[in-house]
Nucleic acid binder design. Structure first.
Lengths: 203, 203
DNA sequence: GCAAAATACTGAACAGTGTTCATTAAGTTT
DNA sequence: AAACTTAATGAACACTGTTCAGTATTTTGC
């Protein structure tokens, strides 16, 4: 009897239907402005139905959080073609910033929003761990190649991640009001450049 | 007739009464969990009354945003005693992180939350400008003293701010799940230390 | 001192939110 | 065909920010 299998498949399809609708709405309108009722409307089901497939709104957000990491890690794959480890590091930083600017809502969910992160176990961090692991590998390679002095790889990677993350967080959350609109991009670019040079000479 | 003056004074007192109550509640319970009705209850007025003194909830948040910057800038005053400009810079970074950890909700409002920043004019950035101005002054002094090479002061300051901000943002928003709980603080400290050293040698 | 004008305040309502649950409809098993 | 299981829903609950007509209270002009 393949009925249970079909049921399971239908259930998975329904979960995908809901999540796809949620993703479209969230990424288009932001998380605040999308309600369970909105999602229910677009898939033409009752709001209560959504709760049969996802425990609550946060579980929906967390599912997207995971999708975001999968997308980001996949975009990092293009780095493999670069042979020079430092160049790869710089390009990874650029990719991180690019991802943030091109997918602001996803990035928000992944690194800034509080909502879905309230209580996460270690198992929920596989994707984030993967991305950070990639960074650590590149940093290690920079050390092996003599580009960086030998330091604790974890702390060094953390320092670099923080440095890059800072820009994107301040930029996305519109905290650069002290600069005139037109100056912001150039200043950001110059600051990123300076950060890379400082790493190159000082680490 | 001092009646208009008294009225003005009473109005200001009422604004303070509301804002104080809001601050206490917000900083204790977080912004999400405090409603206008909660605030109204604690000051024993009707919810509608609050709208006679503040346009909406965001105006309340923005008033606290300003208070936060005043507090932060006042905490930076202790830096004046340090004579070495680089030491002053490091200590400013420490003070920034300390402020964030000790006043997480205020910091959130000032640098992370989207809510009150939706549309701010240039005049609303005086306090932030002041803090960033202080940073630029110290960076300039580091350059004058020959500790840093001469670069664009704005971009350099921005780079340093981003670097420090990154830690605090990731930490406050609980994005260090890949590290075991007990390792986080040491890694953060080491990363901060490494950032300072890297600036010292590489900038 | 008293009526009229101005100000301060509030209860109730509106339109929305996330979430739950008894009830109904559909599908599966015996 | 009847009994059982599963899926979907309408309606409700307890909230939210915000508005507004109406009621107190205070100030003004006579």
């Amino acid at each position: 009897m393949g009925i249970t299998e079909r049921k399971e498949r239908e259930r998975e399809e329904m979960r995908k239907l809901i999540l796809d609708a949620a993703q479209t709405l969230f990424l288009a309108n932001g998380y605040e402005k999308v309600s369970i009722r909105n999602i229910a409307d677009t898939i033409e089901y009752s709001p209560a139905t959504i709760y049969l497939y996802y425990k609550d709104k946060n579980e929906l957000l967390y599912a997207l959080h995971q999708r975001g990491f999968v997308k980001m890690v996949s975009e990092f794959q293009s780095l493999r073609s670069l042979s020079d480890p430092f160049e790869r590091l710089v390009e990874m930083g650029r990719a991180y910033i690019r991802f943030a600017v091109e997918n602001p809502e996803l990035f928000d969910l992944m690194f800034i929003m509080t909502a879905p992160m309230d209580k996460l176990d270690k198992e929920d961090w596989v994707e984030g761990d993967q991305a950070f692991g990639l960074l650590m590998t590149i940093v290690q390679e920079c050390m092996d190649a003599g580009i960086f002095k030998k330091h604790d790889v974890q702390a060094t990677s953390m320092m670099i991640w923080s440095g890059i993350h800072g820009y994107t967080a301040l930029f996305l959350r519109k905290r650069l009001g002290m600069f005139p609109e037109c100056d912001r991009q150039p200043i950001m670019d110059e600051a990123f450049d300076l950060f890379c040079k400082t790493l190159r000479h000082g680490l």
